[in-house]
Design a protein around this nucleic acid. Structure first.
Lengths: 242, 242
DNA sequence: GGGGGGCGGGATGTATACATTGGATGTATA
DNA sequence: TATACATCCAATGTATACATCCCGCCCCCC
């Protein structure tokens, strides 16, 4: 091992496996064999094992009956449920934040992200990359308003499923005009949500968060029905089988 | 190793660690050292490591910054949040079940459990052990009505925290009369919840499930305020610190 | 011909030696 | 005295050999 070792081998193995899974190299249900992987990655069994264990924590793998691991398979139903669940959790976070009141500094940060999101719309053109990044930041910052480690932890878990990330909202829009309309609507919901929290309207905040996720779910369902299956607009769609 | 090895050493190590954590032998925040544990348990580092990894998946341990594990510490806030979260998830499951309709056979099973729960009340005396067991079964069967692997998975995760189990409802009642009243009320909510699902009243089902957890949360808060800290009526209370 | 038992191979489980890392400690120098 | 650097130690990371278990196959006996 005279090579570059920027990180631990465990992390390298985990990264490599994660990439393959997300990009479809290892379809759902595939059984992973320690020896085969360690030979292929030129890494001994121990870190490979450790990496698989961590990916199981992330939810990409599951422990196979009788030992070992296999790639977790997701049905379309699983995917829509995950997105709905994300909405439920974000809604709960929003409601809790509204009920208990928020730190002004944190809230200012949320508004700042919203302003920067606005700037992604130039005329009828959208800077998708910037939007996605800021959108993720917004959802993250919003959830943190609830000050609950338990809620945040579970939310992180659900969002770690690649297809349940906030950017699912973008999907399913065939033309640019449709995308633009979708994102304008999403941004309006973002502002309404922040406003509801600031005004301490818990029930309203929760309802908006849920509706927001419901639309993302609908978009993803459309995308899938139209057959844009693996590797489409979003990495991680390759995970969806059955 | 000529001894009885009914299971793998990993499972033995995990069991032993879990017991110590739940019963307070290893307080929250305690760092776990592989060598020390392996010497103490007379098991080599590898299975100990594996066991810690699994307990991290369960949520009892967390990976320490810079490697290794430590016992997860729960504040009272974490605990109440976890119970509220359980209510949110059960509420979601109930709403989904109501909206999509339920399998009659499963629903019959739920009613059967409810009848058996009724029989735990004999006059003004309650068979607590039987009640706890059946109560857990009820909550489990109810959640399964939603037919969603994703929701069930997350719900299992939250319930695996010892203090977030359904039996938290029993806590915080000083006298037998108080307990009896509590359980009668809980059972009434159980029936109302099942009825709402059967009648496909999703919103109502969700609301009842949440209220049910809210009461459990209140009971646990009382218990804690009254200072019945570690090892009290429920194992797992020892986890709560700060 | 069918069933049972033994045998072999492949997979994970386990033990342990060695490598590496990161922090604590102590010392020398400015 | 403070800072920078060398050193050491303890803890995890890694490699690898060996043990064990499970399962399928085949052969032999009934």
């Amino acid at each position: 091992m005279s090579e570059s070792k920027s990180t631990t081998l465990t992390k390298r193995a985990a990264y490599e496996l994660r990439q393959r899974i997300i990009h479809g190299g290892l379809p759902g249900g595939t059984r992973l064999y320690e020896v085969a992987l360690s030979e292929e990655l030129q890494i001994s069994r121990t870190p490979v094992r450790e990496a698989m264990s961590r990916l199981a924590e992330e939810g990409l793998l599951e422990r196979a009956p009788g030992g070992g691991f296999q790639v977790r398979a997701f049905s379309l139903r699983d995917v829509t449920d995950a997105i709905e669940l994300r909405g439920v959790l974000e809604g709960t976070a929003a409601r809790m934040a509204a009920e208990q009141g928020v730190d002004p500094v944190q809230m200012a940060g949320v508004w700042a992200i919203l302003d920067r999101l606005d700037r992604c719309f130039a005329g009828d053109r959208v800077d998708f990359d910037a939007y996605s990044e800021l959108n993720a930041q917004f959802h993250c910052a919003l959830a943190e308003l609830c000050q609950s480690a338990v809620i945040l932890r579970e939310l992180e878990r659900v969002k770690s499923l690649p297809f349940a990330s906030p950017s699912a909202f973008v999907l399913g829009q065939a033309d640019a005009a449709g995308s633009h309309r979708s994102l304008v609507m999403a941004q309006a919901q973002h502002r309404a949500l922040a406003q509801a929290i600031a005004r301490r309207e818990g029930a309203r905040a929760e309802a908006i968060a849920r509706e927001h996720a419901r639309i993302a779910r609908g978009n993803l369902e459309e995308t899938f029905v139209e057959g844009a299956q693996p590797g489409g607009s979003m990495p991680g769609l390759a995970l969806i089988t059955r």
